[in-house]
Design a protein around this nucleic acid. Structure first.
Lengths: 121, 121
DNA sequence: CCGAATCCGGTTGGATACTG
DNA sequence: CAGTATCCAACCGGATTCGG
């Protein structure tokens, strides 16, 4: 472990933001917010995600209690993922951030253009 | 550029979440939300941040229009950073996420304990 | 169908030293 | 005081292959 921004071992804020650092997390939560979904179905609907990242990200979300994993003992096996109440409440907060991003994207883009212009880059 | 979650070049949502992926961003915004601050002062108050990351992160925030950079032409030079209105409104959203994290940290921690226990890890 | 395991190139960020 | 430049180790994540 290298030097960390939050020396305290279990900073709850970092716990949250670390999830958002992974771009797939938001896409997965967004998809599950529409309703339960199975593994391969998710991979098809979330464009460009690899099995590896889908698996890893889901595992993290399940471990954090944001997503529920249910196995049907059929053949072939079916695994259904869905949001828990905790996950739904978390997604609601993320949705606000998404709204902010959409509302202010023009302001941010303009700031960047101005900045890059002033730099002459 | 490798394969990206958001094929569209300028996804506003990813723009936002990419910032949060960097742990220092939140700490810097939190500090600036208290009031304007100078470079070395920030490095002292934000525990463990290197000059490099402070500089890089600030530059990104300035470029995005979230932080304002003002240079006093004195000797030695003084540079003051402060939140813009855009930055303040962004920080307000992030603050909600922080609140969620604090309120639900016990639920998340319990979920993890249960999960790890079930795994036998 | 639902993953786990391995490999490996690209990025990230800390440490350190230097500039105006 | 306020940064920049360089080096390098650790991590991340895509591609691929294998197992239940």
């Amino acid at each position: 472990m290298t030097a960390q921004p939050f020396p305290e071992y279990d900073c709850p804020i970092r716990d949250v933001l670390d999830r958002l650092g992974n771009a797939w997390t938001v896409l997965i939560l967004t998809e599950l917010a529409k309703g339960p979904c199975r593994f391969n179905a998710m991979q098809r609907v979330i464009d460009g995600i690899s099995k590896r990242m889908l698996s890893n990200t889901l595992k993290t979300l399940v471990r954090d209690g944001l997503v529920r994993r249910e196995v049907q003992n059929t053949l072939p096996p079916m695994v259904e993922y869905s949001l828990t109440d905790l996950g739904a409440s978390f997604f609601a907060e993320v949705a606000h951030l998404k709204d902010w991003a959409v509302e202010n994207q023009n302001a941010v883009r303009k700031a960047r253009r101005d900045y890059d212009l002033a730099q002459g880059s």
